[in-house]
Amino acid sequence: MECFLEIKELCKSFVSNGRYITVLDKISFNLHENDFLCVLGPSGCGKSTLLRCIAGYEKINSGKIILEGNELTKPGTDRMMVFQDFNQLFPWLTVEKNIDYPLKINYPKLSKIQRKELTSYYLELVNLDNFKDFYPHQLSGGMKQRVVIVRALSLHPKLLLMDEPFGSLDALTRYKLQKELLKIYEHTGVTIIFVTHNIDEAIILSSKIVVLSQHPAKIIDIITNDIEQPRLPGTPQYGELWNRLNLLMGLDKSIEESAALTREEVI
C-alpha cells in the first residue's frame, strides 16, 4: 500500500564557515493520513530543518519526500506551516482579513459572502470571532497562534506542519492551546507533524513520536502513542512513556556525564 507521506533517506547539510555541517542524516519514516506525529529532539538537533525541508523552504541534499505519490520540492498550500514566531500574521491586515486573503488567493471562485462565512466559521473554531476586526498587534501571543492555526487550516492542507508553535507561550496558555489543537485535530482529521523539544507536549498530543538524536540528527526511535485521551501525567502509561522518551533523549545520562566531566576538571 502506498503511504500518505514517505520520507526516504533525507539528508540535509549546511555550509557554514566554509565547512559542511550535516544536520539531517538519512532520515526515513512514513506517515498515514490522520496521524499526529510529534518530532521530539533536543534543541538545535535539526527539527526545524526537517520541517522546513518538508515545507519546501530548504533544498535537500539527497533523499526523497513523497506526499501521496508526488515528490515535493517547493512550498505549496498542501503543506501549511505554523511557526513559533508570534509575528506570522500580516500586521497590516485585520484578523479577519488575514484569513480572508489566503482564501481569496486560493479560491478565486468563492464570493465575498462565502469567504466571510468561512472566515467566521474558522474564527469561531478558536473562539476568536469577536476579535475579527482587531489588528494582530492587539492580540496576545496565544490568540495570534490560534489565528495562524485556523488560517492554515482554512486552505485544507494535506499536512499541517507545526514548529514549536506553543514554545513561547506561558504554561497555562500552552496547555489550553494543546487542548484546542487536539479538538481541531479530531474535528478536521488533518494530518499533523508537530515539532517540539518538550516530552510532555509530545505525549499529550501525538499519535506517533519520532525521537531524533543530535549532531547529526538521526532517528533513534519511532513510537506509537495510543494512550487514551485525556492523557494525564499521573497515569502509569503516561509515566512509562515519559521515562522511555526521557531515556531515549539521553537527558539524565547527559546530566550525569556533564557532572562527571566537571568532577574530572576539578581533579
Binding site: 515545507a55 523552504y57 498550500t77 506551516m81 506570522q88 500580516f90 486573503y101 489566503p102 488567493i105 486560493n106
Partner: peptide
C-alpha cells in the same frame, strides 16, 4: 512574511 507569503500560494 515572505515564507508565509509563498506558503499561502
Amino acid at each position: 512574511y515572505l515564507e508565509v507569503g509563498s506558503n499561502i500560494g
